[in-house]
Amino acid sequence: MAAVSVEFTKVAKRFGTRTVLAAVSGALRPGSVLVVAGPNGAGKSTLLNLLAGVLRPSRGEVSHRRGGADLPRSEWCEHLGMASPDMAVYEELSALENLRFFGRLRGHATSDAAITALLETLGLPAREQRRAVGTYSSGMKQRVKLAQAVLHEPAVLLLDEPSSNLDAAGHDAVAGLVARFRPLAAVAVATNDPREIAWGDARLELAL
């Protein structure tokens, strides 16, 4: 796993005339978990999208760096794993087919056994993994989304409300995932859940 960091300086985002995020600075560093907290509408998801490169900041700068050098966008996505409420996997495909597909896109040769093991770790039993995702409950879909985010062992992991729709066992599975990635990856978690806030080594509190 390559050591990749993300630095953001005075990042602001406006949608039309509405300012969603105003001059926020910070960094994601390998080996630490940044918790992004704040009330609904404070811009937690927007900040994660800016860090992922899905959105461009209206002001300020987001830089993705590896070994002190800037990472080009084409390479950055290889190092990024992300799960958020506005992301989904394909409902016509099974969990196994979805992960095979995303693994192939990322050039990450993952065996079916490894995919099955990962999904089981996240609480999706093997017998459920060959059913179409469209027939899953919200919690089961969330588990597949999380598996998609970590399948390629990303150096940067962005999790937006990772325990949403999950039961207590699911929450524990996410906690295990964060603990597994904490030593080497740079992790950011956007949440208002006090249990998830406790995972953070650093905390960024956004205000309305």
């Binding site: 899905v54 996505c77 992300m82 506005d86 992301m87 996997v89 409902e91 995303f102 989304k145 998609q148």
Partner: peptide
């Protein structure tokens, strides 16, 4: 519509 665009955008090269 299915919210898979962002997932695909982050995983695949545009040309692919």
């Amino acid at each position: 519509d299915a919210h898979t665009a962002k997932t695909l955008r982050l995983a695949a090269r545009p040309l692919a």
